[in-house]
Amino acid sequence: MLSKEEIKEIDEAIRLVPYKKAASIEALKVVQQHRQWVSDESLKEVASYLEMSAEDLDSVATFYNLIFRQPVGRHIILVCDSISCWVMGHEKIKEKLSERLKIDYGQTTKDGRFTLLPNPCLGTCDCAPAIMVGNDLYRNLSIDQLEGILSKYE
């Protein structure tokens, strides 16, 4: 069941568009905000609320890399893997994170704390390499900073 709060937020998005279906991305964002990811069950509920088929909504949900259709950890680590970060050695950052957290891209730590994902250019190329953890951006990174960064997230 969509919560009252979720319905309120989805309704706000619907208000801005001419028909309900057009709020699909906003609605997926609302559900993900509240539940961390979009399960099959959530997807069906949202689709029914927007008067569209679940298949139609899933085609939208699976198109966008920041809508999660699988469970994710409490904190998402996005490693910028685009050109400037590659030149500046992002691979070392990724290797260190993988080694420390014992996960590869697309995986979540056993304690559900972190999910590690590659992300295209984070738009901070003059401060490469860069990662994001949750909503926080870290730039000009070196591997010895990673332990301190990770320790900020429970």
């Binding site: 568009v17 198109f63 809508i67």
Partner: peptide
């Protein structure tokens, strides 16, 4: 004026794909 934040995909920068995305579709 409204702010819409995207959910990823480079394609959204192409203007007609951006419009599709704003309409709640695949970009």
């Amino acid at each position: 004026m409204h702010l819409h934040t995207g959910v990823g995909r480079y394609m959204c920068g192409e203007e007609t794909a951006l419009l599709n995305s704003l309409e709640g579709k695949r970009a």
